[in-house]
Amino acid sequence: MLTVGCHLSSSKGYLAMGKDAVKINANTFQFFTRNPRGGNAKAIVPSDVEAYLAFAAEHNITRILAHAPYTLNACSADEHLREFARATMADDLARMEYTPGNCYNFHPGSHVKQGVEIGITYISDMLNAILKPDQTTTVLLETMAGKGSEIGRSFEELREILDRVTLSDHMGVCLDTCHVWDGGYDIVNHLDEVLTEFDRVIGLSRLKAIHLNDSLNPLGAHKDRHARIGEGYIGKEALIRIINHPALRKLPFYLETPNELDGYAAEIALLRENYQ
């Protein structure tokens, strides 16, 4: 069965997200742990979590993905911003244990003229400070498009972070189709070769989730502008090949396309119709 969902608003709580997922025929979903621009997180209501877990079991919702706020920059040149990222992510991981066994995804950050090596050091140091041996949440590094001084524009940069994390069994990667395309990996014409390269550098066993997005930009543009399925340079046929690829088809897919619920429902229906 295809595991597919989209990004849902967390403002009304876990149970409401679960109901929205079922409404659009999704069996997973992604959500922000707090306001995507940063700030305090909404208090978790244990009764809401309990109701969600029962609802999710009843409706076969599985492997949800939390997304850190965009504003977190674990490799900022500003020590206070690095500390804010560390404290926020540590809090998020503690909150994730209310829904055990899921994933937490974040953008590695931008080194802002300090250089990739220093940026990677800051990111791995933060992860070593916040990961705990007994946590059930897997933390995912997201592949990035490479705009500005973003870290994670190449598989090698992500691998270097993973190599420096002591509790590496708690780490994985989320591959964003728009980002890798914008980053220069040709998943339209050379999907097999890109996955072979990913396996060589990082290892496919590390790949835990896929953000399934089309791109408004041509290959290697380094701009990161998502498009609806079939309305960008990647195209519907290539994205359908991705969900059916033997190395990927059992992974969860999360749509981050510019849609409301009805648009997500249509894309999910399209993907299910073409899943083999």
Rank of each mutant, 00 (worst) to 15 (best):
A66F: 10
F106N: 07
P69N: 11
F106L: 07
T62Y: 03
H59T: 01
A77T: 06
G115R: 05
N102R: 03
E79G: 00
N102Q: 12
E58F: 00
A68F: 02
V112W: 08
R63I: 00
N102C: 00
S76Y: 09
T121S: 11
F106G: 08
N105Q: 07
V112G: 01
H80D: 11
M89G: 08
E117D: 15
M89K: 02
R63E: 12
V112F: 15
P69W: 11
Y104A: 07
T88S: 15
H111K: 07
C103I: 01
E79F: 09
H67W: 14
K113N: 11
G119N: 03
E79Y: 10
Y98P: 02
L93G: 13
A90E: 15
T99R: 09
R63V: 02
A94P: 02
T121V: 02
K113W: 06
Y104H: 05
S110N: 12
E83V: 13
I118H: 03
H67A: 13
F84V: 08
Y104S: 05
T121H: 05
R82G: 08
H67C: 08
G109P: 03
T99S: 08
I118M: 09
P108Q: 03
H59L: 00
E79N: 11
Y104T: 01
S110M: 04
H67F: 05
L65Y: 02
Y98S: 14
H67Q: 11
A90P: 06
P100E: 10
A87P: 01
H107A: 03
M89V: 10
A66R: 04
H107I: 01
L65Q: 13
M96W: 13
P69K: 07
H107V: 03
D92I: 13
P108F: 01
E83L: 15
H111E: 04
S110A: 15
N102V: 04
T121M: 01
N60W: 01
D91N: 14
E117W: 01
G109S: 01
R63F: 00
Y70I: 08
F84R: 09
D78C: 08
G101N: 14
E79P: 05
H80N: 12
H111M: 10
A66W: 03
N105R: 03
E83I: 11
A68T: 02
P108R: 00
T88G: 07
Y98T: 06
H67N: 08
A74C: 13
P69H: 05
G115H: 06
V112R: 13
I61C: 02
E97S: 12
E58P: 01
N102L: 02
I61G: 06
C75P: 12
H67S: 12
F106S: 08
M96V: 00
N105K: 00
R63M: 03
T62A: 00
F106Y: 13
E83S: 10
V112M: 12
P100H: 07
C75N: 03
T88A: 11
A66M: 09
A68I: 07
E58Y: 01
Y98F: 15
H107T: 02
R86F: 04
L72W: 05
N102I: 00
P100A: 09
